[in-house]
């Protein structure tokens, strides 16, 4: 995969300074985030944890460029989002970030391959290339045999793997996963986590998880605890960002080969 296509590759995936976000809720200002400083480097594996209402979802939305901060600065891949128009923000979201949602968010009547290809439509990628990349992405999550299946024809674990393929198809630097295992049983949840970890290790894609499950959070190399709109604890800040990915790789040649094997098994 060509890594050099984007400038600012070595800039941090996310860099937040004094990030706040407040809402008007029936006339009352609610501060969801009250000043967050955060830096997530390329290839990191981070879990954002906290009780509900802590602001972790708001933080997630800001990192994913779905929302804009009330104050403070946020750089995504080195770009200050406050300078971007809505259209530019959508384009940044399309290129820089891949989303995985708790409830999968797949188009129900659309085959897996077209679900996966969706982000590429908004990038103007031609149809043949879209399908080819979507197929490759599905193979990399072990669903090479499910290209034409609709979400309703697949198990929850498979659906979430389709969603992961969709997050990856645009070759983003970061995958933001919002409770990715929340709707799955423990076996499927473990499988989804294993895939995310493998992608992190093999491709150097930074993974940012939002979760309230301690065992899921524990699998990330860095934990950020959010409470009352502030970062309460950041396991990564003390020792700086850990060395990216490679250490957990299953073995040499495991990357591309692994997905090929899975694809092969499928057929």
């Amino acid at each position: 995969m060509i890594r050099g296509e984007r400038p600012g590759r070595e800039a941090p995936a996310f860099e937040a300074v004094g990030l706040t976000r407040s809402y008007q809720l029936e006339g009352i200002a609610v501060d969801a985030l009250r000043g967050v400083d955060l830096r997530i480097g390329p290839g990191e594996s981070v879990a954002i944890v906290g009780p509900s209402g802590s602001g972790k979802s708001t933080l997630m939305h800001l990192l994913g460029c779905l929302d804009r901060p009330t104050s403070g600065t946020l750089r995504v891949n080195g770009t200050d989002v406050s300078t971007l128009s809505d259209t530019e923000l959508a384009e940044l979201r399309n290129r820089a970030v891949g989303f995985v949602f708790q409830s999968f968010h797949l188009l129900a009547r659309t085959p897996a391959i077209d679900n996966v290809a969706l982000p590429l439509i908004y990038r103007g990628v031609p149809r043949a290339e879209r399908r080819e990349r979507a197929r490759a992405a599905l193979e990399s999550v072990g669903l090479g045999h499910r290209l034409g299946h609709r979400p309703s024809q697949m198990s929850g674990g498979e659906q979430q793997r389709v969603a992961i393929a969709r997050a990856l198809v645009g070759d983003p630097r970061v995958v933001l996963a919002d409770e990715p295992t929340g709707n799955l049983d423990s076996r499927n949840g473990a499988e989804v986590m294993a895939i995310l970890e493998r992608l992190n290790a093999e491709r150097g894609v930074a993974i940012v998880l939002v979760t309230h499950e301690p065992e899921v959070a524990a699998r990330a190399r860095r934990q950020i605890h959010v409470r009352d709109g502030l970062i309460e604890l950041d396991s990564g800040t003390a020792g700086g960002s850990e060395e990216p990915g490679g250490s957990r790789t299953g073995g040499p040649g495991g990357g591309e080969g692994g997905s090929r094997t899975e694809a092969g098994e499928a057929e």
């Binding site: 959508a90 384009e91 989303f99």
Partner: peptide, 14 residues
């Protein structure tokens, strides 16, 4: 679906 499309990078005009 609209929210999802936007999250995946659909612009307002798309």
């Amino acid at each position: 679906e609209i929210g999802l499309r936007k999250a995946l990078g659909a612009r307002q005009r798309d």
